[in-house]
C-alpha cells in the first residue's frame, strides 16, 4: 500500500474538503482516465484495491498511472475508550480528493476494456466517478 516515507508531523487535523480540484483535472499520461466528481478521502487500501481490480482486468496489456497519493494520516481512538485524553494514534493514510481530480489513467488498452476496468475500480472507491478520454477522442 502507498504511504509517505517520512512526515514532518505525525498527526494532522481532519479538515474539510471544499471546492473543486484546481490541478490534476486533465489527462496527462494515458488515453483514458477516471475522474472524481464528488469530494472524499480515499484510503491507501481503497487505492490498492482499485489498482488490483484494474490490473487484473487488463491482464497482460496496457499501462496504469495512479495520480493520487495518500499523504494524510488519519487517527482513530481505540474501541471502548472514553472521550478526552488526547488525539488517537494514526491508523491509516488517505488522499484528499476534490471533484474534478483524475485519480487513475490508462493507456495501451481498448476503450471498452478501459471502461470496464474503471467500472470495477470505481466500485472500490468512496467517491462518485466519471470515465474520461482525451479531447477529440469522444465518440
Amino acid at each position: 500500500m502507498l504511504s509517505p516515507k517520512r512526515t514532518k508531523y505525525r498527526k494532522q487535523h481532519k479538515g474539510r474538503i471544499k471546492g473543486m480540484a484546481k490541478g490534476g483535472t486533465e489527462l496527462n499520461f494515458g488515453a483514458y482516465g477516471l475522474k472524481a466528481t464528488t469530494p472524499g478521502r480515499v484510503s491507501a487500501r481503497q487505492i490498492e484495491a482499485a489498482r488490483r481490480a484494474i490490473t487484473r482486468h487488463m491482464r497482460r496489456v496496457g499501462k496504469l498511472w495512479i495520480r493520487i497519493f495518500p499523504d494524510v494520516p488519519v487517527s482513530q481512538k481505540p474501541q471502548e475508550v472514553r472521550m478526552g485524553s488526547g488525539k488517537g494514534s494514526p491508523e491509516w493514510w488517505a488522499a484528499r480528493v476534490k471533484p474534478g481530480r483524475i485519480m487513475f489513467e490508462l493507456d495501451g488498452v481498448s476503450r471498452e476494456m478501459a471502461e470496464q476496468a474503471f467500472i470495477l475500480a470505481a466500485a472500490k472507491l468512496p467517491v462518485q466517478t466519471r470515465f474520461v478520454t482525451r479531447i477529440g477522442e469522444e465518440g
Binding site: 473543486m20 480540484a21 484546481k22 483535472t25 486533465e26 475522474k35 466528481t37 471533484p99 474534478g100 481530480r101 474520461v132 479531447i135
Partner: peptide, 9 residues
Amino acid sequence: DLQMHPIKE
C-alpha cells in the same frame, strides 16, 4: 489554449 470546467467538462 482551452480552459475546461473540471467536473462538467
